[in-house]
Write a protein that binds this DNA or RNA. Structure first.
Lengths: 341, 341
DNA sequence: GTCGTAGGCTAATACGTATTAGCGGCTCTC
DNA sequence: GAGAGCCGCTAATACGTATTAGCCTACGAC
């Protein structure tokens, strides 16, 4: 078997066209500066040689020499498998891919990042971040120390989802959970609800904190607004708790728990929303089997993906000034699970 | 705003440790050859300097100097949007990502490839193929001329799905549709069916050709085995056709058409599989609304993804010899739509 | 004392491109 | 006819790493 023929380089083109390698580079990059000029017929000779050989510049060498590569790195924090969490990323990736295509960028998925102490790490011996011009961070919980490092190194990046400062403000494109939850609370109050409960998970990420803040801010007008943790408790006992307290509407962080709660309510001969209103705080990331249209809101995941690429490309080419932080509105879903108390 | 601090290079490490850049490189690559030896204490000094600075090698420079990059390119032929076809790729990507992670490779999605004449092109002015060590081709119809070019250039690649020769044999990991369809035909014959019909689409890809070949090969034992095109015809007229001819079992290429055909049958007061057996030739790529469990087979998409990476890495590092062509078996689905004639 | 040898390291170069200083020749000006 | 200015191009260098030929020292053998 013959060794792979050495690939065509600018030197080869130069030889063919009877010019220097520098000239080839200049022609390729269409430089029309005043300080480097190429006669039309020379340019033609070069272009003809390029066409003949099917030459295409080596993107690696190009990147080494100049600054940019038109590659956007995508780093997914949670391990992509089992496939449940893969679906979590899917809508984001859809948006990311769409905008990347429009922007003429390739996407580099950092699947090689090793899992250390149960989570993926960007920074490790032999990290390959610099293959990309910048990078998009996906994941519910993102390690603050890695954000610190990114900030320190001045590496362009954008987080999908709001992030607290980490050695400086963090550029992000997130969803405005606080506003969405506030709206839901106002809706419930308008319907006459006065005794509310917020059913929380043990997630400490900003996304959850924002929802809780939104609830706390808007629920001041209520007669009673409690936080209940659903961790290690089943729907039955939570339901007992709610009924005992006269709660008429539950704001449920975990979509699957909302489904379970509705089921428990029905099993007890009660109805939703007749006896209890149940609101969800974002569409589920994994398919949850239910026929019910829950009242709640939708997270604009695709749009977050799109805009994260938009922001990142702006940061990379320097056209964006200041730290970019965007919160996109969530879309309210009317649904069937909010009634009168 | 201060310009980004120049990144740490091997030269910096060398200065810190009081050695030459070459020594740093040698230490980094853990070379224990006889012709390059480093004293333990020198090695330690270097490693300490690396740890202090958090140095990580620039993958771009590394790629330029040596040969490999541990990047696997992924090229999706059909435009990824609208999202229908995106879902088509999802199971493949799942498998690809899984194996790439295991192999310590990153994935590069060539989203920048331009669409020319309605389809994406690998080769174009400024193609960026060489960013990757090799590449995986996804798509129902892959342009033969591009395969030619890949073969000619000796660029490592693997197609997902069997491909006809293109200036030489094409490495692939496909599904054995011919065998799966043959099995289905045998199943039908064993049940007593003698008048079969194959309902084809207008797809000319190898995947469809293989199914048709499988049908033709196994159906020789039948009394009557016809091919019918479903293009531009609705389920009603096709059903007329089938019944008029005494056909008792239909092999349907297009899953959605199978659903429509079943519906049409039922509407006419007939039953499946009582009056007509309907077999599908692969699980649908887009979600099709039906409660029915069709008899047919499953395409091992995830496994195809996994093995394509396995094959490709073998080709790249030279451990695979000869052209790699693999056909994976499909899993038969018993289902409820095959009965006695 | 001379030669051989092995260990430990470095200088030099290659990879393929982008960039820039500057060279030689020409025309124009007065 | 000498300087100024422009045109068209090239030589040289940088980017950060991997590789290899070979240098220097020390040590042992005879």
């Amino acid at each position: 078997m013959p060794a792979t023929p050495r690939r065509v380089t600018q030197r080869d083109i130069a030889r063919l066209a009877g010019v220097s390698q520098a000239t080839v580079s200049v022609v390729l990059n269409n430089r029309a500066d005043a300080d480097v000029r190429i006669a039309p017929e020379t340019r033609d000779r070069v272009l003809r040689a390029i066409a003949e050989t099917g030459y295409a510049a080596d993107p690696v060498a190009r990147r080494l020499a100049s600054r940019f590569n038109r590659i956007i790195g995508v780093f997914t924090y949670e391990p992509a498998f089992p496939s449940g969490s893969r679906d979590f990323f899917h809508p984001f990736l859809l948006g990311i891919e769409e905008y990347a295509e429009r922007a003429g960028c390739d996407l580099l998925l950092f699947t090689s990042a090793p899992v250390i102490d149960g989570r993926r790490r960007i920074f490790h011996q032999d990290n390959r971040l610099r293959l990309a011009d910048g990078c998009i961070l996906l994941g519910q919980e993102i390690d603050g120390s890695e954000l610190h490092r990114l900030n320190r190194d001045g590496f362009p990046y954008v987080a999908v989802g709001r992030r607290d400062d980490a050695g400086g403000p963090v550029p992000y494109v997130g969803a405005d959970y606080a506003a969405a939850v506030r709206e839901l609370v106002h809706l419930a109050l308008a319907r006459g609800h006065r005794r509310l409960a917020y059913l929380r998970t043990d997630i400490t990420a900003e996304s959850s904190a924002d929802r809780r803040r939104g609830f706390a801010e808007a629920a001041t007008a209520a007669e009673n607004a409690r936080h209940l943790s659903t961790v290690d408790r089943d729907a039955e006992t939570i339901l007992d708790d709610l009924l005992a307290d006269g709660t008429t509407v539950a704001f449920v962080e975990d979509f699957a728990f909302a489904v379970a709660l509705e089921l428990a309510t029905r099993r007890r001969g009660l109805t939703v929303p007749g006896d209890l209103s149940i609101l969800t705080l974002g569409d589920p990331t994994v398919p949850v089997p239910t026929d019910l249209a829950f009242t709640g809101f939708l997270i604009p995941r695709e749009e977050m993906g799109r805009q994260s690429v938009e922001v990142l490309t702006g940061v990379i080419d320097g056209s964006a000034d200041g730290v970019q932080q965007r919160l996109l509105p969530c879309e309210l879903v009317e649904g069937d699970t909010l009634g009168a108390p």
